[in-house]
Design a protein around this nucleic acid. Structure first.
Length: 781
DNA sequence: GATTATATGGTTTTT
DNA sequence: CCATATAATC
């Protein structure tokens, strides 16, 4: 027997050695799921299955990379590089890059991220003359996404009576029209959004038998991780791909299903056993991760949910510390408590920064932790939130590259056509868009043929210069690699130069970010990462398709071992484990979130999320909540989360949560003090009249006439001898004359040296802020 | 047409 | 509080 089987328990081994036929692994939290998956892949390969014939779908790219590494380690080879492994999205993007022409898309299709997608929706809503206050891009977008993930196309959408009634009830009768327009525009732009990567893959397999057969033959063995978080499209695809060989293995835990907002449904797990005749089911119930206390608490909480797949998670580990329940006055104090606690634990129990994770329900919560950690000088890293690739300067640079690779990409084109400024403004762009729609041609083609459509003079020249420039970059595509093209683009567009000349701190950071982007392109170009030969080119188009699917946690391979406290949402923490875990903001309306307490289903998903949070911890766990926290800049009160009441008392240490007096609140006269009375052990709710103090308006008592919003200018006729003076040395107190506002006195100087602003009290026109770079002023004395 | 001051309004979670 | 849409100003 191979020695890689030695470290496995009985059910684990059973799962690993089941080679042919459908297999379902129900894997509780911390039960060695990844180990089973990697060992099983290794086992397949050791038994003669070619890595090229194995498809493994994971939930994150990081997990995929890790699994590859572990398979290679087991087999002591580099064969795992030939596996088809990654997220649904990235694997299908790769396949579609080779197959997109079958569906009428360019193989160089752009992948639209959520921002791009929202922007397209905005355009469509505008073009249909609909009110974007009513048709908010986020709402419309998630509705479209929901339809796509449920395999409901625009046509089916418009004819489904239930959906139509729903939209009508929500006063959005034009949804179907927007949906259709959105799809058409994406197609015209040669672009797929995240959902399309799944949907188009499905459409191809479903409508083109030769394509289906090709990939069925290729993927003789299929494994799907986190199966409880797959949605309808993913389910259909896996069913199609697996139909021929039925060597399909799914791994999941219904208790950890937390992505229903993305269309995921637990049904898929239950359905799996009905889809195939002889499904082998293996349950992994021994937890190797957490202490007994942590596991007991987790089991008890999740037990409140109805209709679970029956299983009993147990552990041989020690009992461990009780779970600490901590109450603080405010979110800032919560942050301070966590930092203090980390410091203390490091000293007392010899932990390192990297042993700690701070988990929270919403990204906005990270701020308070961040501040206190920084103050304490504790190294940390925030995962998720605003990604590197979402920064403006990065999106700008990428937009240029996207236009070069795929000129049909209208979103990218609109972003950069006048950045840096080249005299193609809003008006011109609007005209171009109208022509493009009339002629039913792409925006780029409209620009190319602008002379035909009556563009003249400076605008026409600017347009053609732009086209020439993009064309010039395009000629490089075939000769140069991604990095060289990108460098040329940065140089030639003055984009890099513009950022370089900005010497503010933020400007410097932006410049460095662009350099970092260029470096990462270079790195990507040079490192053959072992992706198979099918689409193995390292051209710019391939890079762009990958980059949209990257997340921060995928890219930080190098500091994997760096000694930092990790901060992330609970969603992002799925599949990870940490020695010590803080779960913050365990309050009603935050966790469970106010948006998710309207139905039992929603609440149960919040509870599963809580379960996921708790089971991330190996040794020590803190659950913290604040009496009040800032929301939109205003302090709001919250009750402790109901989940805190669902846990068995004997495993809890509530000494930190008594009345909250034990904590720092007292000393902190400034912040916490005034909220003390209100926040004190749940007496009566805050009086209603306190709810909303009239937002303090600029002190204009209501009995006085309101300040005129647009003070009329008292006409001034410039003096005979009016001539603009050199104002670069203008001083407070000097008398000046302004062409329009007349005479006045400089009362204050503001702005930077680059953009000086004088505050001038005019005799007849009151106080004005005058930008000296533009205004013509005559110095009188 | 570009730049900057001001109003608005939005927070769940993510590929 | 923050990020983006709109209005004001050159």
């Amino acid at each position: 027997m191979q020695d890689y089987l030695n470290g496995l328990n009985a059910p684990q081994r059973e799962a690993v050695t089941h080679v042919n036929g459908p297999l379902m692994i129900v894997a509780g939290a911390g039960s060695g799921k990844t180990k089973v998956l990697t060992t099983r892949i290794a086992h397949l390969m050791a038994n003669g299955v070619d890595a090229f014939n194995i498809l493994a779908l994971t939930f994150t790219n990081k997990a995929a990379a890790e699994m590859k590494e572990r398979v290679n380690k087991i087999l002591n080879s580099n064969e795992a590089r030939n596996l088809y492994i990654g997220t649904f999205h990235s694997v299908f993007a790769r396949i579609l890059r080779a197959e997109a022409h079958r569906l009428g898309y360019p193989n160089n299709f752009t992948i639209y991220d959520t921002d791009d997608s929202r922007s397209v929706i905005k355009t469509i809503v505008n073009e249909l003359n609909l009110d974007d206050k009513h048709y908010k891009p986020n709402i419309v977008g998630s509705r479209i996404s929901g339809a796509k993930n449920a395999l409901i196309g625009p046509l089916a959408y418009s004819t489904d009576t239930y959906i139509q009634q729903e939209d009508l009830r929500n006063k959005r009768p034009a949804m179907a029209q927007i949906y259709a327009g959105y799809c058409a525009r994406c197609f015209k732009n040669g672009a797929m959004d995240f959902d399309d990567l799944l949907l188009k893959m499905y459409e191809m397999l479903n409508t083109q038998p030769d394509a289906l057969s090709k990939y069925q033959r290729k993927f003789k063995y299929i494994m799907i991780d986190e199966y409880q978080d797959t949605n309808a499209v993913q389910y259909q695809i896996s069913k199609l791909l697996g139909a021929m060989n039925e060597n399909i293995c799914v791994v999941g835990d219904d208790a950890q299903s937390i992505y229903s907002f993305r269309g995921a449904t637990i049904e898929n797990i239950l359905q799996f056993q009905k889809d195939y005749d002889d499904v082998k089911v293996v349950k992994l119930e021994q937890n190797y991760r957490s202490t007994q206390s942590i596991l007991k608490v987790a089991n008890e909480v999740i037990g409140q949910n109805k209709g679970q797949i029956p299983k009993e998670l147990w552990t041989d580990n020690k009992v461990g510390d009780k779970i600490k329940i901590v109450r603080t006055m405010t979110d800032n104090e919560e942050g301070k408590f966590v930092s203090d606690c980390i410091q203390e634990q490091k000293l007392r129990n010899h932990y390192h920064n990297k042993d700690f994770a701070i988990l929270y329900r919403t990204n906005a919560q990270s701020r308070a932790y961040e501040e206190s950690l920084r103050r304490m000088g504790i190294a940390y890293k925030i995962y998720g939130g605003l990604s590197f690739y979402q920064r403006k300067e990065i999106k700008d640079m990428l937009a240029y590259l996207r236009v070069v690779v795929n000129p049909r990409d209208e979103e990218a084109l609109k972003r950069i056509i006048n950045y840096p400024v080249r005299g193609i403004g809003k008006t011109s762009l609007e005209k171009l868009a109208i022509v493009a729609n009339e002629q039913n041609i792409t925006l780029f083609e409209t620009i190319q043929r602008s002379a035909e459509f009556g563009f003249k003079g400076g605008t026409q020249e600017a347009l053609q210069n732009f086209v020439t420039m993009i064309r010039y970059f395009q000629t490089m595509l075939s000769e140069k690699n991604a990095y060289d093209v990108a460098v040329q683009v940065g140089k030639h567009t003055n984009l890099v130069k513009e950022l370089f000349s900005d010497k503010t701190t933020e400007g410097l950071a932006r410049y460095e970010n662009v350099q970092e982007l260029l470096n990462s392109i270079k790195y990507w170009t040079e490192i053959p990462d072992g992706e198979d030969g099918e689409v193995g080119t390292k051209d710019l188009g391939a890079f762009l398709q990958q980059v949209t699917l990257f997340t921060d946690s995928d890219t930080d391979t190098e500091d994997k071992e760096s000694d930092v406290v990790k901060l992330m949402t609970i969603h992002a923490a799925k599949g990870l484990e940490f020695g010590c875990v803080f779960v913050g903001g365990v309050e009603e309306n935050l966790f469970p979130n106010a948006m998710s307490i309207n139905t039992r289903e929603e609440l149960e998903e919040e509870r599963r999320l809580f379960y996921v949070a708790v089971t991330r911890a190996k040794d020590r766990l803190w659950l913290t909540f604040a009496n009040a926290r800032y929301r939109f800049g205003q302090l709001v009160q919250n009750e402790p989360s109901r989940f805190l009441e669902e846990m068995p008392e004997q495993f809890l240490d509530r000494s930190y949560s008594g009345g909250g007096m034990k904590n720092q609140g007292m000393n902190n006269m400034g912040g916490g003090f005034q909220h003390m009375q209100r926040g004190f052990p749940s007496q009566s709710p805050p009086p209603a009249f306190e709810k909303k103090k009239e937002p303090s308006k600029p002190a204009t008592p209501s009995y006085l006439p309101a300040q005129p919003t647009a003070p009329k200018v008292v006409e001034h006729k410039p003096s005979e001898n009016f001539a603009p003076s050199d104002t670069s040395n203008l001083q407070v107190g000097q008398q000046v004359e302004h062409q329009k506002f007349g005479f006045g006195t400089v009362t204050k100087m503001e702005g930077s040296a680059h953009n000086p602003i004088a505050i001038i009290e005019f005799a007849h026109n009151g106080e004005k802020k005058i930008m000296l770079n533009y205004a013509k002023l005559r110095i009188v004395e």
